[in-house]
Design a protein around this nucleic acid. Structure first.
Lengths: 291, 291
DNA sequence: GGCCATTGGTAAGAGAAGCTTATCGTTTCT
DNA sequence: AGAAACGATAAGCTTCTCTTACCAATGGCC
């Protein structure tokens, strides 16, 4: 119905006017003068009106004067859009929504994000934290681009790339008999007042599972859990990364036989692809954590 | 530096999304499906990011979702500009600035403009009136598109197309001896109290010129002139078109030997060209007045 | 479970568009 | 009057874009 105005043709017209001549414009655009003559002529023919006066001079007709500012506006917006998109592609703009389990969020992310932002100063990052199910849910719903968590079952919907292994151990107060040990076996937990927590299900389907049955407490909140440990109410199991090192009276003793560990990695949707910014984050995290 | 986004490619992307598929979009655009596939692929390669997910489905990536509204905005503005310009070319928008000598402005233009506007309901017309020099000045300065006037000397700067011939005659009161005559010779004006007016210079360089020398009065204003004629102070000469027919007591008697007439026509700049709207007006006026 | 329709992607060739070189006719400045 | 600069034009080549024909994957549907 209406003919496509090509951005290039409009740009030619603008340049001819700005440079006050076809030759100067051609030099400026790295084209030859006939290229501009013909392009302008083609445009004029399609519009059904001349833009430049015929008398050999590069002067606009009244119609050309009407068109010029409108052409300029469209070309300007085109160029702005181009720059905008290139900035995204080049990771000089954009934002990343992430989610991580609390231990990762508090222990790994601070320096990770600081280093990332040093590399991509104009990217914005949002970080949500919650338990592994919550992280998985956010990734599944597309509410975040990437998740840092451990994954139980493989799922077609996700792509999971393991990054760091995190061994489970016992946490107790410094005056507990275990406190001076450098490692423990699961059997030794027999009869201990064991407090379960959010990470305890890492022990599901392992030799350690029966031990959890004895446990009288389940505490999901980390602050409450450490308070109970500091109070000497009992001991708990935690992955090393989740062990709060800032509590002077608490000790972490690795458990062996069997060795139980969680694998923390990058969770992303397998069907959807990532925004350029998220791609940068993915590459950065895997480069940082794979060693 | 930054690659030209072609409007057509962007439109393809929008259509694929809107029609939810390459085939449907191709049908809609009267293209074949591979044309769209390849155009989209080319665009993606130039941006360095995919717009559509790879899985055989026409689903946008996050990057595509970012781009889509921006593409749509640019295409919308492009289309608006296209319609806008086509409306001008088709004379469905625009305005014309005109100037005419008073006789033409008051006697010819009213019906002329009414008929013109009936034909082009959306065009706007401004009409200035003044003496022939004023009209010529406005056209020369480019302050009006067209002038309706008479021209003395030919000029490279203007193109003048004569349209109607307007004979000069004597105007007197109905009780004047001339009032019953059907024509007069210049010699008969000898000894008459002759009032000069703005049109008198039409008689320069004619046999009638010596007669003007006797004249005691020069009145430029038409209202004043007619008042003097009605008062019986004297007689004057006017072109027929300038004779105010609404005064019952005034009579117009054509002068002969020599026959003196002015030629009224369309004055336009010869160097500049006309806006589409002014072209329509020019064509209309010449069609109406040439017979 | 296998068939068929529909999806998008790929390859090769035809056609259109755009660019360059070479040349011409005007205008303008010296 | 001559030279230089301007824009227009013509012919040939390159590049892009579209079409035809075919392939691979997916999704219903008996």
């Amino acid at each position: 119905m209406l003919p496509d105005l090509k951005i290039q043709q409009l740009r030619y017209v603008l340049t001819v006017v700005d440079e006050r001549g076809f030759h100067a414009a051609a030099r400026h655009l790295h084209r030859t003068q006939p290229a501009l003559s013909m392009a302008v002529k083609e445009l004029e023919q399609r519009l059904g009106q001349r833009l430049f006066e015929k008398g050999g001079k590069a002067e606009l007709t009244p119609f050309g004067n009407y068109c010029l500012p409108r052409f300029r506006e469209l070309v300007t917006q085109h160029d702005r859009l181009g720059r905008d998109i290139v900035a995204r592609v080049d990771k000089r703009a954009g934002h990343i929504d992430m989610a991580a389990v609390p231990s990762v969020a508090s222990r790994l992310m601070p320096t990770l994000l600081a280093d990332f932002i040093a590399l991509y100063p104009n990217l914005k990052v949002s970080l949500h934290d919650g338990n592994a199910d919550y992280v998985r849910g956010l990734v599944a719903a597309g509410e975040v681009d990437l998740g840092l968590t451990s994954l139980w079952q493989e799922d077609e919907e996700f792509s999971f790339e393991g990054l760091i292994r995190d061994a489970v151990g016992v946490v107790c107060r410094d005056d507990h008999p275990f406190a001076t040990r450098t490692e423990l076996r699961w059997q030794e937990l027999q009869g201990q007042p064991l407090i379960r927590n959010g990470t305890s299900r890492l022990l599901d389907n392992t030799a350690a599972e029966p031990l959890l049955a004895q446990s009288a407490f389940y505490i999901s909140n980390m602050i409450s859990l450490t308070a109970m440990l500091v109070a000497g109410i009992g001991v708990t199991t935690l992955p090393r990364l989740a062990f709060p090192e800032e509590y002077e009276r608490l000790r972490f003793i690795p458990l062996t036989r069997p060795h139980v560990e969680r694998e923390i990695g990058l969770l992303k949707p397998s069907r959807r692809s990532l925004s350029p910014a998220a791609q940068a984050m993915e590459a950065f995290i895997t480069a940082q954590l794979v060693r």
